[in-house]
């Protein structure tokens, strides 16, 4: 009895870690944008939703090769991210922060409505049935393993970009001293564009990984948006490493919580943990001051 119990626990922990990969990817995108532009994109998960629809239509309906469909989704959401910045954020950049929250919050409802009009509220899926992997009496879905692996690779690529390139260095620097960037010869506008496009691209990549596991519908963003914000705040808003750690802490809590009752309770535990942590460390795990 004891032994079986432990193996379920281990399975839940591993599944939590696997689930955390995509959450970490999403929080990286959101943190990146926040760190550079100083704006929280409330509508971030709605970009993911459009990416999921793109894969669904290209691969599921038009039978285009899934990898090409995935690249198409990443490119499309990347452009969407750039558009969000240029059309919505850029015009109100210098104004009160509440405006940016209202604008991206408004965009969230706009994107949900557009999706409802275009695709109806029907739940759709790719109809892929990826096999389940059995490993010493524990079960893991291939879709999750794949999502975890690709998310990790995606994060490593972003890390290398940020640490090895000039633009990456400028992206890390701009949040520390915005005004001085001009002396470095940095055109801040261009850095914003690159960041918004990468943020969009990461949402697109996450979309490709999520559509393998979940149905897509106009409100699917609700399933990932709030938890992504909580991860970012728990890690310390704008702190990419903090977000990475927080993603795995929360996904493991959700997964273990789900083991003892329904998965919804996992979320309840995760939110409760978050609230307690906000009293202990209001600035987030790795946040400053």
């Amino acid at each position: 009895m004891d032994e079986i119990f432990d193996i379920f626990l281990l399975e839940a922990i591993i599944n939590g870690i696997l689930f955390g990969g995509v959450l970490a990817l999403l929080s990286l995108g959101l943190n990146l944008i926040f760190g550079v532009v100083d704006v929280v994109w409330i509508c971030y998960a709605e970009l993911v939703m459009f990416g999921m629809y793109t894969v669904y239509w290209l691969a599921g309906v038009y039978d285009i090769n899934i990898f090409i469909a995935a690249l198409g989704a990443i490119a499309l959401v990347s452009v969407l991210g750039w558009l969000v910045h240029v059309l919505i954020i850029s015009p109100i950049l210098g104004t009160a922060p509440i405006n940016q929250l209202l604008a991206t919050g408004g965009l969230l409802f706009f994107l949900q409505s557009v999706a409802t009009l275009m695709f109806s509220i029907e739940f759709r899926n790719l109809g892929l049935r990826l096999p389940i992997l059995e490993f010493s009496e524990m079960y893991f879905s291939y879709a999750r393993l794949l999502a975890f692996g690709v998310a990790l690779v995606g994060m490593v690529v972003v890390y290398l970009f940020l640490t090895r390139t000039y633009i990456g260095a400028a992206i890390r620097a701009i949040s520390q001293d915005r005004e001085i960037m001009v002396l470095m010869g940095v055109n801040a506008k261009k850095i914003y564009w690159v960041t918004a496009s990468i943020g969009g691209g990461l949402a697109g990549l996450a979309a490709c990984l999520l559509v393998l596991q979940y149905d897509v519908h106009p409100f699917v963003g609700i399933s990932f948006g709030p938890i992504t914000f909580i991860i970012c705040v728990l890690g310390g808003l704008g702190n990419m490493i903090g977000g990475f750690i927080a993603a795995f802490i929360l996904s493991i809590i959700i997964s273990i919580g789900g083991l003892y009752s329904e998965i919804e309770w996992g979320y309840v535990f995760a939110f409760a943990f978050f609230i307690v942590m906000m009293f202990i460390r209001p600035q987030g795990l790795l946040g400053k001051k």
Partner: peptide
């Protein structure tokens, strides 16, 4: 001085050479 305090000395220097 206005350095980027959270970045390494070398990263600070590298940013000085950002211009094409």
């Amino acid at each position: 001085r206005r350095l980027f305090p959270g970045m390494s000395v070398e990263d600070n220097l590298k940013l000085g050479a950002f211009a094409k």
